[in-house]
Design a protein around this nucleic acid. Structure first.
Lengths: 212, 212
DNA sequence: TAGATTGTTAATCGATTAACAATC
DNA sequence: TAGATTGTTAATCGATTAACAATC
């Protein structure tokens, strides 16, 4: 019986472990302990150990975990070692920033192209990626079997973009607009509410104040 | 005894409810039921009811909740009705996109200024906000009692920016770089790992495939 | 050897879900 | 009235935490 949980909380923690392991590796250390990672992140060591168990890492008492093995296992668990092609609709400030973010490339994501309705943008390139007209969207996605799409258009246009993505065979939509998308059950929408993170930060501040 | 839980999960759900309530309000509906919200988001109605209880909303059997009251209560709970001044260091693509995102203004956040080391950017404005030199950072933040700072610089410079923010009296840091920041216990760091959301989307897709 | 750290098993905690009476 | 929906109380579930033996 599979005992894996893969909680979202855990998936959020793993990249933090990865960053620390990279740091440790850059200092030519061969091993890293769960305790060390926990101290860096103000977590309990047992939390880190449990998470590392989930990604299949095996440590040695006293020594900890092999750093490069750990990096590999986290990357593999996160899917960073696989190529994922992705398209983006809405090449404004936010869309451009996302297409230019080097973290995506490092983690196996490749932007096939950006799409926009703005004639002035069509034909230009953003961080080396073409900006294509919306009219080419469905055909290109179907031909290349793209499964992931990013929506960075204003809320008012988000639904029509989503409809188009579904028509094009996209199964996972990463929605940066605040619009609540209406989609069939088999389509997965990941809502990115950037504001929420800021609210969580504020709540944590308030909470810290109360516990003074 | 306080029974509130305020889970992060709940805080992530509330903006979704808000978006749907706005939609319903724009259709001149006076009431909205937890069931309706739940159906929109593929959630169980009891989840929505529990969350709405937390924000202090009171509904009427058969009718549901008063839409505008609900909007108010969610906004208040999230702190969107209060003015929050914020500064940002690193006016690149991502920094610019964040400063220009209208959602922040709508939700009570005001960017006091952006800061950068690039001479070419200093003195310009981004979405109506000044770009100032780093040298003015500490003084301005202290004078204005700024508590929240955003880091959108490359990972290699993130730690030094964090140190500067702490010196300036900032207590909450929203870190968009992948760097693991080293800060004193009383400073709250909210790590924004944008990649993580994409991984979660992928995991959900895989999970959906397995349950076919 | 001594002791720090792992890995396992059990206990706790908190969030989600279920059941149902109350009520508009 | 009838019935949909709320709000409350209890049950379940899953993640976190604790305890500790195993081991390098």
């Amino acid at each position: 019986m599979d005992k894996t949980t893969h909680s979202i909380q855990m998936i959020r923690r793993l990249p933090r472990y990865y960053a620390i392991a990279e740091q440790v590796q850059s200092q030519s250390e061969a091993n890293i302990s769960a305790t060390l990672i926990a101290n860096h992140l103000n977590l309990e060591p047992i939390v880190v150990r449990k998470d590392l168990e989930q990604v299949g890492a095996e440590g040695k008492p006293r020594l900890g975990f092999d750093v490069s093995d750990l990096l590999h296992r986290i990357a593999s668990f996160m899917g960073w070692d696989q190529l994922n092609q992705i398209v983006l609709v809405g090449c404004g400030d936010l869309g451009s920033a996302i297409m230019g973010y080097s973290g995506f490339v490092q983690r196996g994501f490749e932007f096939v192209a950006g799409f926009d309705v703005d004639e002035a943008k069509i034909g230009t390139t953003i961080h080396g990626k073409q900006v294509l007209p919306i009219s080419k969207f469905v055909n290109l996605c179907q031909r290349m079997h793209i499964e992931l799409g990013i929506i960075t258009v204003p809320a008012s246009q988000a639904q029509s973009v989503a409809d188009m993505m579904i028509e094009a065979g996209i199964r996972g939509i990463w929605n940066f607009s605040t619009a609540a998308l209406n989609v069939p059950k088999h389509i997965i929408v990941q809502q990115e509410d950037i504001i929420t993170s800021l609210v969580i930060l504020q709540k944590r501040l308030q909470h810290a104040d109360e516990n003074n």
